[in-house]
Design a protein around this nucleic acid. Structure first.
Ligand SMILES: [Mn+2]
Ligand SMILES: [Mn+2]
Ligand SMILES: [Zn+2]
Ligand SMILES: [Zn+2]
Lengths: 129, 129
DNA sequence: CAGATAGGTGATAACGATTATCGTTATGTC
DNA sequence: GACATAACGATAATCGTTATCACCTATCTG
């Protein structure tokens, strides 16, 4: 039903070209920098379409949603509160224990999001007094 | 430095009176219903003050922040995407594995938030075809 | 007590991310 | 080509939250 238009393909290409976690604004700017300016509403619509088709993934951080490529195994995120760096990790046992905890409370799980906050290696080093 | 004023005490009392997870608007309405109307800005400021003093806790959900009493052990949350019901759970092993995962990536953890989405027992029953 | 100082309060403007609206444009089908 | 169906883009609107700013309180000081 939803079409993979020129601009949606371009968004997808940008996202698939790295492991970055993009927000809508960054993508609009990247398109613009590439000489292919795009309306911000089109970015939001395109991202929603791509995500609903499973072509990209997203994480909801406190302020904004960030999108990333979907061709990776499920993982969760660590966010550096100093520089914004996002580190990925996956832990099979944590996933299993989550399922167990949900089951114990009678919950039918459809998803989850684990975000850890702290200082990345770089920023922890830099802030030593 | 920050004062525990009459309205802040009232907010704290409401929050401590149950295990609910309140948003700013609900608290303003509760105050109003109790005959003690309060400006919405005062609610936000009061909640920020109470939280920074460790008198209340909060969780950041996709759209809004919700506040709850702080006199409970750390726990995480399951949110029913159908009715909004929030179930709490805590899993010691999950917490420990998170620390291990962070350490492995060189992250100094300052916090985390695990939110699981799905259907609560009630809603799962109701949606059987 | 009078004045000074430090916060707090409340109405409301501003903000930032996202969504809705609406006229225009591209794409697909006959 | 003509019509239907989405997508596009500019922009208004929405919503949670924060900033402003003109009063209010306390609390302190002499
Ligand atoms: Mn990721
Ligand atoms: Mn809770
Ligand atoms: Zn960092
Ligand atoms: Zn439910």
């Amino acid at each position: 039903m939803a079409k993979l238009t020129t601009q949606r393909q371009a968004l997808l290409d940008i996202i698939n070209a790295s492991h970055r976690h993009w927000d809508a604004d960054e993508l609009a700017r990247a398109m613009s920098d590439a000489g292919q300016s795009i309306g911000i509403a089109t970015v939001y619509r395109g991202l929603a379409a791509l995500e609903s088709q499973g072509l990209i993934d997203s994480i909801q951080l406190a302020d904004k949603k960030r999108y990333e490529r979907a061709d990776k195994a499920h993982h969760d995120h660590m966010v550096c509160t100093e520089c914004g760096h996002i580190e990925e990790f996956s832990h099979q046992t944590i996933e299993q224990l989550q399922l167990a905890a949900a089951h114990e409370k009678g919950f039918t799980l459809t998803g989850h999001q684990l975000v850890m906050f702290g200082l990345c290696h770089q920023c922890a080093k830099g802030s030593e007094s």
